[in-house]
Amino acid sequence: MLELRLVQGSLLKKVLEAIKELVTDANFDCSATGFSLQAMDSSHVALVALLLRSEGFEHYRCDRNLSMGMNLNNVSKMLRCAGNDDIITLKADDGSDTVTFMFESPNQDKIADFEMKLMDIDSEHLGIPEAEYHAIVKMPSAEFARICKDLSSIGDTVVISVTKEGVKFSTRGDIGNANIVCRQNTTVDKPEEATIIEMQEPVSLTFALRYMNSFTKATPLSNTVTISLSSELPVVVEYKVADMGYIRFYLAPKIED
């Protein structure tokens, strides 16, 4: 028996919008720790890791570990039927091949349930080792989204370089090239507007902008984004999901032959 009640149902709606472009089908795993997902995109270049901790749910019942295969486009179709203020409850019986999404309006005058068929998915789970990152950049998520969008109108790849001067996003294409430098800036009115750069050593890596743009679909989840870089390692682009968890996107770098 599985029953997860999320008062801030809009978080789940935003999570689905954030990942459905990157991944088509995925297994959602439920355990005592929380509700999680790990899935690679079809070309095995990018990975999304989601964790919503059990403490973040108003009610969290998961009698045994359960893996539920879902088509994310179909989940998104279901969740789009929930109002932004609705409370969302996920329910599944042991051994059932369906999951039920229950939507309750805030004043309880409308209750809907949508039952969705589950599917068998052969999932490939990657072991992601703990890593020490050479540079960690925390910046406003809207700013990062704007940079990725702007650069993708010029080129296909972005070089992200962190030095003590700041973080530089560069691209080049047929029509020309572009460089955007963001300096550390902590003298802002609100903490979420700050750009904070923690650098152990300079790092410069190249990534496909198409994937970066896909990650920025998570922007509505959080005012800030954290970008962790190490030479010779995939970048981690992390968005917090309120105080209950995170979405982390991993992207393998392009490396000079």
Partner: peptide, 14 residues
């Protein structure tokens, strides 16, 4: 030119 690496070059299937 640059080669797009796969995640499996860095992380192993578990």
């Amino acid at each position: 030119s640059e080669t797009q690496h796969l995640l499996t070059n860095f992380f192993h299937l578990s």
